[in-house]
Amino acid sequence: MTADLLQQTIWLAAVLFAIGFIGLMVRRNMLFMLLSLELMLNAAALLFICGGAVWGQADGQVMFIIVLTVAGAEVAVGLGLLIQLQRRCKSLDIDRLSKMGETE
């Protein structure tokens, strides 16, 4: 892997991570917030793949699979809560949930 390619990959990962982070802060729809979270985790996974290529080791790919598993577990729990949210508020807007807490 050339130094140029390495640098570009790190930048790509950083930009993906930033997009995910901004998305999580800005969006109020829980589905999109979970998607943004996935984006952040996948940016980290890209870094591991890149590291594995730089050092010619399998460790990076092992970590990639761990990241995927973590992301899967996180989304499984997240979607469970999403369904609860939809049932309770008839909407995916998380701001509505916090308003509900105040009025009760």
Binding site: L37, M40, A43, A44, L46, F48, C50, V54, V67
Partner: peptide, 16 residues
């Protein structure tokens, strides 16, 4: 989730 992503991203940078 954000904290986990930051942890993984940091670990990735360290690994590279």
């Amino acid at each position: 989730g954000v904290a986990s992503a930051v942890l993984l991203f940091g670990a990735g940078l360290t690994y590279i």
